[in-house]
Design a binder for these strands. Structure first.
Length: 301
DNA sequence: AAAGGTTACAACCGCCTAAGG
DNA sequence: CCCTTAGGCGGTTGTAACCTT
């Protein structure tokens, strides 16, 4: 007996989500909170499988998602983390909470791989691996990587237990140049969808005074704000969440749908290393190439 | 202006893991 | 323990938008 499909394939809609479907999903989650994905299609009336709903929410509709082009600092961080963690996008995403793993993965595959390949051709190193050619197939590399990960986890745990709470790493440095990218963020279909959803949600709010529950309305309003912010005239995303003035509800969403926030609290050593400009050799183009695990692990642990 | 090629990204697929019975 | 299943993750694909000729 094979594994049954996650959802009944018959009658399950596939393909791009419509704004109407988004509204239904968001409305349902506003009311019931994220989670119990299995129940969402049935209870909300969506003809989508639970997986599709979860993905749509986490990658697209969840409040606090930053869209648009990546800043140089974000890219540097991704390169560095990819060298350290490999293609573990979920782990990498925990350092860039405003980005989704899908977003980072896509950006890596479409932009950064190419960029690094170009650098590799110029510099004769293996891009993205964090190792020079003669190191790349070094015996014991995986063991070393694993050990580093274990050490990282231990360190994080220790710091978490000691209640050390460094400020959010994304609050300080990355945001400082968040609009420094020379290329304007691309306007995608998301923008118009979001505007539609925002409008619909506003109408929905007006029509739905049944919610004596203020918090629900409040959170919907926040969602609307975020939607509007995310499509501001200059195309940049400066959401409420970016400034961390998020409603408890939204915080809850983020906590619920993202990896443990405490992970981020407890990585001051790592973040120092990750954001240390010196590591990046000034222009960020050589960093990975000069980076090796020996250096990093020695410094970190 | 049209055709063909390229890029970007939303969404799907299938595997893995952990929780619950 | 074993089995089932929901949720999570990374790889891959499909396609709309954009660019070049």
């Amino acid at each position: 007996m094979g594994r049954p499909p996650c959802c009944d394939k018959v009658g399950v809609k596939k393909g791009p989500w419509t704004p109407e479907e988004d509204i239904i999903l968001v409305s349902y989650i506003q009311e019931h909170g994220p989670g119990n994905w299995k129940a969402i299609p049935t209870n909300s009336g969506l003809s989508r499988c639970s997986k599709s709903c979860r993905l749509r929410w986490t990658n697209y509709l969840r409040p606090g998602i930053k869209r648009g082009s990546f800043t140089e600092q974000e890219e540097n961080l991704i390169i560095h983390l990819q060298a350290l963690l490999g293609n573990r996008w979920a782990a990498i995403t925990s350092y860039l909470p405003e980005r989704t793993d899908n977003d980072i993965k896509n950006h890596w595959n479409t932009h950064m791989k190419k960029k690094l390949r170009r650098i590799e051709n110029e510099g004769g190193m293996i891009a993205g691996s964090g190792f020079s050619k003669n190191q790349s197939i070094a015996k014991g590399q995986w063991e070393k990587r694993l050990q580093t990960d274990i050490n990282m986890a231990k360190q994080a745990l220790q710091e978490a237990l000691s209640m050390e709470k460094p400020s959010f790493l994304y609050e300080s440095k990355p945001s400082s140049s968040s609009h420094s990218s020379s290329t304007p963020p691309s306007s995608t279909t998301y923008a118009s969808s979001t505007e539609n959803i925002s409008r619909l949600l506003e109408n929905w709010m007006r029509k739905a005074p049944k919610n004596s529950d203020k918090s629900t309305q409040h959170s919907v309003k926040n969602f609307v704000n975020i939607g509007a912010d995310s499509t501001s005239s200059d195309g940049t995303i400066t959401s409420v969440a970016n400034n961390h003035i998020v409603s408890p509800e939204i915080s809850q969403f983020q906590v619920d749908s993202k990896p443990c926030l405490d992970e981020r609290f407890s990585l001051s050593l790592i973040e120092t290393w990750l954001f240390d400009e010196n590591y990046w050799g000034g222009n960020g183009s050589n960093i990975v190439l000069d980076f090796s695990f020996d250096d990093a692990s020695h410094e970190l642990f």
